[in-house]
Amino acid sequence: MSQSATSRPVYRSPFDLPREEYLAPGHSLCAGCVAGMIVRHLLKVAGPNTIVVTATGCVEVSTTLYPYTSWRIPWIHVAFENAASVASGIEAAIKVLQRKGVIDPNKRINVIALAGDGGTYDIGFQALSGLLERGHKVLYVLYDNEAYMNTGIQRSGGTPLFAWTTTTPVGKVWKGKWQQKKPIAEIVAAHRIPYVATANPAYFIDMVNKFRKGLEVDGPAFIHVIQPCPTGWRFDPRYSIKVAKLATETAMWINWEIENGEFRVTVPVPKRKHVKHYLRMQGRFRHLTDKEIEEIQRFIDREVEYINKRLGKEVIGPLVE
């Protein structure tokens, strides 16, 4: 049904992005927070003819403290669990109002839903599935900091195995979260929508080109972005991008996309690092024993095998360090 053909050029370097800023500085996101960077570049790609719906969460509370706002484009927040439903309403309204001539029918308005892991994996999951099934032309961007950071680091469906959070504390009995992270992007992909991708801000050009594609397809698009959180993951704010990069270098985070059914790994990793390099940088994994780290490594090895098998070639290489 769609082509990703392209009013926007492919981005090859940061200089290809517009200079205009649509997320104003002065917001109150934490030092080192990558969410600000994700949103800033998302808006550069989307441009001014864009309406953003943000679920309750870090980005919402940090950018719109009344009477101030960081948003230079029309923006709405309604609640935690319904960014997808609100976006559906906006998209449908634009469609009918353009048909009736109330809104200029030649104007192309992007509709973006932006939510964290709590608002997507957990409380907003039903609304998201509804949007995908109905096929609204909405780009849904998930910024995943792997816990309820806005309320103070509580476990979510996106929290990885063994991670410490304030509701999965490390004690005599509990040793962090005891379940795996929910494979949300694959669940979304199972809805057979035109575009699904995972992205990592450390692979910036890859990320912005995915935003571009997500805005161009004719139907729902979903982009799952990893967002290292110095506050909740317990690392020095200056290392946010380093941590993000290690996530991909260890294959804890694989950058892939499914465009009209075709699966691709967009950032191949020929030589893979051991997960300990990623885990040991973060206080939330400080309690892990070597045995537990090996358990995570085995899980990642299986994931890598699955991806390579799916592609029929080795895009994620062997463990070398």
Binding site: V53, N82, A84, G89, I90, A93, L97
Partner: peptide
């Protein structure tokens, strides 16, 4: 129904 009113809110917010 939660999404019904949520979608109505989104639609009304763009003037429908």
């Amino acid at each position: 129904e939660h999404s019904a009113l949520s979608a109505a809110i989104g639609a009304a917010a763009v003037g429908a």
